[in-house]
Amino acid sequence: MSAPAGDPDASPVRVLVADDDADIRDLVEFKLTQAGYAVEAVPDGISAWEAFAANPPQLAVLDVMMPGLSGIDVLRKIRESEFSTVPVLLLSAKSRDSDVDTGFAVGADDYVIKPFSPRELLHRVNGMLARAR
């Protein structure tokens, strides 16, 4: 499955992926790239924020559990920035109710719990981008 067909001349939709776990980072990047997105993958919260500020993507996938700045910390900064409407998907470990609550309270658009289905993640990304248009 690939990203919804849009204008064939438009540049690919840019997605930022942040996760300190290399496995997850790589597989999400691969999945989204195969689907036609242009992915920038970073390993921690600080890099995520810096990448976001330098070149705001159309969507961000953030892991909640990252050393230093967590996904929620980064989300908070995004929502307080001028690009506050960028859709954000949070990745979190199983049954972290507080993460879910805090995440939505701070302004996440969607949530995926680990262990996750990569296919489902792609569905959600597609869905979020479609709604954002």
């Binding site: 496995d23 997850i24 680990k114 262990p115 996750f116 289905s117 990569p118 296919r119």
Partner: peptide, 14 residues
């Protein structure tokens, strides 16, 4: 590494 990976994904890939 596969065992590690199995803690992170589920579904057909798993």
């Amino acid at each position: 590494n596969i065992v590690e990976m199995l803690t992170k994904i589920r579904g057909v890939p798993a």
